[in-house]
C-alpha cells in the first residue's frame, strides 16, 4: 500500500478488483447541454438551471410552484378531478396501467397541477404542466382542471398564469383529447371579459395540441430559454420536407426572432418578472420613489 492509498478515506477507495465504487444515485448529475458534472443539490438550488452554462433542465410541476408562489396560503384546485378510460384504450399497454405508472413516478394524478396562491403578495392562480406524467399530455382531466383554474380567476378576480410543458393532446382519450383544445381555449374568453390577464409561459417542450390551443392565446406569451416550442415535432417535419432543420429551429430564441413570443425569461428571474408583469397588467399602483439626484 502506497502512502497515497493509506490516506484515501475508505468511502472512495477503489475495490480490491480495481472497480470504481458506484456513485450513489441521485447525488451527481450531468448537464444535458455542457456535460458539466453537477452536484444535485446545487442544481436543485439553482432551479434545475445549469450553474455553468445556464441550460434550463426540466423541472417538476411541484418544484416550479414551490419556487413561484409565496409559501403561505396555497390551495390546490381540481385535485378531485381524476382520469377515466373512455375508450378502454390499449396498445402494448393499457391506458389505465400507463396512468398508474405515471402516478408512481410523479406522485401526480394527471399532468396539470393548479394552485391558488400569491406571487410576492399578488394573488394569482397558477396552472403548471407535469411533463413527467405521460409527457404532459392533455386529456380530459387537464382540460377540466384548466377550466376550473380560469373560473377561480373569474370568481376571485385574479390573473391566470400557466406554465406549459407538453407533447400535445393525449392519444389514449381519442377525440375527447382533441376537444380539450377547444375547451381550454374557449374558457379564456371569460377571463378576457373580466379584463383579467392570462400570462402563458412556454417551457421545454410545448408542442402539438397544447401549443396550438391556449398556449399562444396569452395576453403575454413568455418562453423559457432554449425551450422547444412548435406545432409539429421536428422529426415529423424532417420526414415531411426531407431536409435538415436549421440550427435552433423551434427553440425559444427562434420564436422570439420570428415574433411569436413577447419575452424570454430566465427561470431564476421568473418569479420577480411575473410579479412585475402582473403589477403592470393589473394596474396595481406602486410607491413612487423620488429620483436620486447626485450632487457632483
Amino acid at each position: 500500500m502506497s502512502w497515497f492509498e493509506s490516506i484515501i478515506p475508505p468511502k472512495i477507495k477503489r475495490k480490491e478488483n480495481g472497480e470504481k465504487k458506484a456513485v450513489p444515485e441521485g447525488l451527481w448529475s450531468k448537464c444535458a447541454s455542457c456535460e458539466a458534472v453537477l452536484y444535485c443539490t446545487d442544481l436543485a438550488k439553482n432551479l434545475n438551471v445549469c450553474p455553468k452554462c445556464s441550460h434550463h433542465n426540466r423541472i417538476s410541476a411541484r418544484k416550479r410552484l414551490e419556487f413561484l408562489l409565496d409559501p403561505q396560503d396555497r390551495h390546490e384546485l381540481g385535485m378531485d378531478v381524476l382520469p377515466q378510460d373512455p375508450l378502454k384504450f390499449r396498445d402494448s399497454k393499457r391506458y389505465t396501467d400507463r396512468l398508474s405508472d405515471a402516478h408512481e413516478v410523479t406522485s401526480e394524478t394527471d399532468s396539470l397541477v393548479v394552485m391558488r396562491g400569491s406571487i410576492k403578495s399578488i394573488p394569482v392562480v397558477a396552472a403548471v404542466f407535469e411533463f413527467g406524467f405521460m409527457g404532459g399530455s392533455m386529456g380530459s382531466v387537464v382540460g377540466e382542471r384548466f377550466v376550473r383554474a380560469v373560473k377561480a380567476c373569474v370568481t376571485h378576480h385574479l390573473p391566470f398564469i400557466c406554465f406549459s410543458a407538453s407533447g400535445g393532446a393525449r392519444m389514449q382519450e381519442g377525440l375527447f383529447s382533441l376537444m380539450q383544445m377547444a375547451k381550454t381555449t374557449a374558457v379564456l374568453e371569460q377571463l378576457s371579459r373580466e379584463k383579467l390577464p392570462f400570462i402563458s409561459i412556454l417551457t421545454d417542450p410545448t408542442m402539438g395540441g397544447v401549443s396550438a390551443s391556449f398556449a399562444f392565446i396569452g395576453d403575454i406569451v413568455i418562453a423559457e430559454p432554449g425551450a422547444l416550442i412548435g406545432f409539429a415535432g421536428p422529426r415529423v417535419i424532417e420526414q415531411t420536407v426531407r431536409q435538415t432543420l436549421p440550427a435552433g429551429f423551434q427553440r425559444a430564441e427562434f420564436l422570439l426572432e420570428h415574433g411569436a413570443v413577447d419575452l424570454i425569461i430566465d427561470r431564476r428571474e421568473m418569479r420577480d418578472r411575473l410579479a412585475n408583469l402582473c403589477t403592470l397588467l393589473m394596474r396595481i399602483p406602486v410607491p413612487v420613489s423620488p429620483p436620486v439626484i447626485s450632487a457632483d
Binding site: 385535485m79 378531485d80 378531478v81 381524476l82 382520469p83 377515466q84 373512455p86 386529456g139 380530459s140 382531466v141 382540460g143 377540466e144 377550466v147 382519450e173 375527447f176 376537444m179 380539450q180 377547444a182 375547451k183 374557449a186 374558457v187
Partner: peptide
C-alpha cells in the same frame, strides 16, 4: 365546449 371530456370526480 366546456362540457367536453370524460373524467371522474373523487
Amino acid at each position: 365546449l366546456l362540457g367536453y371530456g370524460r373524467f371522474k370526480i373523487n
